[in-house]
Simulated scan of single mutants.
Amino acid sequence: MGADNDVTGAADSNGREDGARWAGQEEAAKPPALGEDRAAWLPEGMTTPSEDERAAGAQARAELQARSLDMWVETKWWGFQVHMNKLTADLIGDLEEWASKIIGAAIPGIGQLVARVMKLHGQAIKAANSAGPDGVKCSSPWFAPPG
């Protein structure tokens, strides 16, 4: 790896060529632009978000951003990640309504459940947030079968 830790397209000392970073070396995820779709993958049988769900999520995110807060969701083949900037992670216990809409815009049907679980785990999220400068990424495998 070079001094700038850019591993994209280059093998690291362990021979990895996929551009992945090892734990502790991952750069902070860059938030998508408002309206940019990061819900690229959903399990077979799970419905895609409706236009109303996407609009509600975009509106909730815009309201958070107006307060210097931010939250976004990325879906992966193995599960999903909810990203929060530092201030958002500190306030997660008070943001369930917004979180529910933002998560529901990417993962229909479980946004409210995931937001409630995040609220219940608020102290752990705050503790993780205090350990670094970039906020928190909560990751989960797909925990419910589709349908």
Rank of each mutant, 00 (worst) to 15 (best):
G57A: 15
G79P: 09
E74Y: 01
E74T: 00
A89W: 13
A60T: 01
T48W: 14
Q59W: 06
F80R: 01
N85V: 01
L69Y: 13
A60N: 07
T48N: 12
A55C: 03
A62Y: 13
D70S: 14
A55W: 06
K76A: 04
K86E: 12
Q81N: 11
W78F: 14
K86I: 00
L87V: 06
G79S: 07
Q59L: 13
L69R: 08
S50V: 04
L64Q: 07
M71Q: 10
E63D: 15
L69W: 08
D70K: 05
R54G: 02
R67D: 15
W77I: 07
M84R: 05
A66V: 00
A58L: 05
L69C: 04
D52W: 05
M46Y: 12
A89I: 03
A55T: 12
Q65V: 11
N85K: 01
D52S: 13
P49C: 06
M46S: 13
V73Q: 06
E74F: 00
L69P: 04
T48H: 14
R61Q: 15
D52V: 02
R61V: 09
Q81K: 09
M46K: 10
D52I: 03
G57L: 05
G45K: 08
F80M: 07
K86N: 12
A62M: 12
T75E: 02
H83N: 11
R67N: 13
M46I: 06
E74G: 00
K86W: 06
F80G: 04
E53M: 11
H83I: 00
T88S: 10
Q65P: 10
S50A: 05
S50C: 03
A89P: 07
A58N: 15
V73R: 03
T47Y: 03
T47C: 00
T88Q: 07
G57N: 04
Q65L: 12
R54F: 03
H83L: 08
L69G: 00
R67I: 00
T48M: 10
A62R: 14
E51W: 06
T48D: 13
R67F: 06
E63Y: 06
W72A: 04
A89F: 10
A89H: 11
W72R: 09
P49G: 05
T88R: 05
A66L: 05
A60V: 00
T47R: 15
R54A: 03
T88Y: 12
Q65F: 07
A60R: 01
Q65N: 15
V82Y: 09
R67V: 00
T75A: 01
R67C: 02
M46N: 08
M46Q: 14
Q59Y: 03
G45T: 04
K76W: 09
R67L: 14
W77T: 09
E74Q: 09
L87I: 04
W72M: 05
E63F: 07
E53Y: 10
G45E: 10
W72S: 12
V82D: 09
V82I: 12
A66R: 12
E74V: 01
G79D: 06
D70T: 10
R67W: 09
R54P: 03
D52N: 11
A89V: 02
T47W: 05
Q81T: 08
S68F: 04
E53A: 15
